[in-house]
Simulated assay, not measured.
Amino acid sequence: MSSSTEPLPKLFTPLTAGDIALANRIIMAPLTRNRATHGSDAPNALNVEYYRQRATAGLIISEGTQISQQGQGYIWTPGIYSPAQIEGWKGVTEAVHAEGGKIVAQIWHVGRVSHVSLQPDNRAPVAPSAIVAPTKTYLESGFTAVSQPRELAAEELPGIVADYARAAENARKAGFDGVEIHGANGYLIDQFLKDGTNQREDAYGGSIENRVRFPLAVVDAVANAIGKGRVGIRISPVSPANGISDTDPQAVFGHFVEKLGRRGLAFLHVVEGATGGPRDIAPFDYAALRRAFKGVYIANNGFDRESAIEAVESGRADAVAFGKAFIANPDLVARLERNAPLNALQAETLYGGDARGYTDYPFLTEKAA
């Protein structure tokens, strides 16, 4: 721990993101855990305790929460479109706020990364183009190849945009401090942005200007619904997650973030490198995004205490998001501040299950006792 004469590293100091005041710059990244209530996909008492334990994060970004049944890609992930789901999330946000924390909902449409068994009436998942994803989803039976998607008709897109806006309004009804639009990791918005998945020949495909049209329509609708100061977006310019790629990500994301920068959003959350993998998977100038975006820049992927402190001290990022470290360390902020050892992650309990590997990771005080 720093001595009283040494200034606290900036990582541990307050920050304001749009209309949201954060106690520190350590962000809990969105983490899919597949523990919503079976049958309703509503958060439950176990989820309430999980988030309550982690409320010392400067900001919690919830696990991806689908905007509609069509937007669901994995079993037992929570939604934000039904009354039961909104009620379930109220328990979570009340618990986090009671502990002095802040939490935003990550609103999510998976696009082609789904399975017919999760879709309304067992229909095909939807995508910008009918290209199957070389990836798997998680079902009751375990990991399974995703289904062949169908191409969305242009006239269907306004309805999906409206689903995002409604999800943002529902998030506010549930007590969230704002939302993060999931535009990363090969899901629907990322599928529109990248030419490996978007091979449309209409106003939503082809040129970069066309490929950003749907993502920007979502951003504008969500900002109009709840106020731009409560909206962030997550992107992953070069991550190959869920089999996605683009021939010129610097051009696409340079253009997209320049457009986002004019919209006055609260934050931009960037997966730098391959999601959960190497940061140097492909050359990319993240500093260009940082310059183009006027709000808070949250850097994510592979950070430890030392690199997170350096990123914020140097001004390369305003805040740093941690994923797996927050799964295994509910009191991660205290551990980083004291430079205390971290609990090891139990990989076998990541998806589905009960309290084991979810709410039973020890706190520092418990370890000392």
Rank of each mutant, 00 (worst) to 15 (best):
S4D: 13
P7A: 08
P7R: 04
L8I: 09
F12Y: 06
T13I: 03
T13L: 12
P14Q: 03
T16G: 00
A17R: 01
I20G: 00
I20K: 01
A21I: 00
L22S: 00
L22D: 02
I27H: 09
P30Y: 10
L31I: 14
T32S: 13
S40L: 11
A45E: 15
V48K: 09
R52E: 14
Q53I: 07
R54I: 04
G64L: 02
Q69P: 15
W76S: 09
P78M: 01
S82F: 01
S82N: 03
G88S: 12
G91P: 02
G91N: 14
T93K: 06
H97R: 10
A98C: 00
A98N: 11
E99A: 14
K102N: 11
A105Q: 12
A105G: 11
Q106I: 12
H109D: 15
H109R: 03
V110S: 05
R112M: 11
V116Y: 01
Q119D: 10
Q119E: 14
P125I: 07
P125C: 06
I131T: 06
V132H: 03
T137M: 08
Y138A: 02
S141Y: 04
A145V: 02
A145F: 00
Q148T: 11
A154Q: 08
A165F: 12
A167G: 14
A168G: 07
R172E: 13
F176V: 10
F176H: 12
F176M: 09
D177K: 03
D177F: 03
H182Y: 10
N185L: 09
G186I: 07
L188V: 11
I189D: 03
D190W: 01
L193S: 06
T197G: 02
T197I: 05
T197L: 08
E201V: 06
A203K: 14
Y204L: 07
N210T: 09
N210L: 05
P215Y: 09
P215E: 08
P215G: 04
A217E: 12
V218R: 07
A221L: 03
A221T: 02
A221V: 03
V222Y: 10
A223I: 07
G227Y: 11
G227H: 06
G229V: 02
G232W: 03
I233C: 04
P240Q: 07
N242L: 09
G243F: 10
G243A: 11
G243C: 07
I244Y: 05
S245W: 07
D248A: 15
P249Q: 07
F253E: 12
F256I: 11
G261R: 01
A266F: 03
F267S: 05
L268N: 06
V270F: 13
G276V: 03
P283I: 01
P283M: 02
A288L: 12
A288Q: 12
L289T: 10
R291D: 09
F293R: 04
F293W: 08
V296K: 01
Y297M: 12
Y297K: 01
N300L: 10
G302A: 03
G302W: 09
R305T: 10
R305Q: 14
E306D: 15
S307R: 14
S307A: 14
A311P: 10
D318S: 00
V320L: 11
A321H: 09
G323Q: 13
I327D: 02
N329K: 09
N329C: 04
P330F: 02
A340H: 14
P341G: 12
A344C: 00
Q346D: 12
A347R: 15
E348R: 12
Y351K: 06
D354Q: 11
A355S: 14
T359N: 10
P362M: 05
L364A: 14
T365D: 15
A369Q: 13
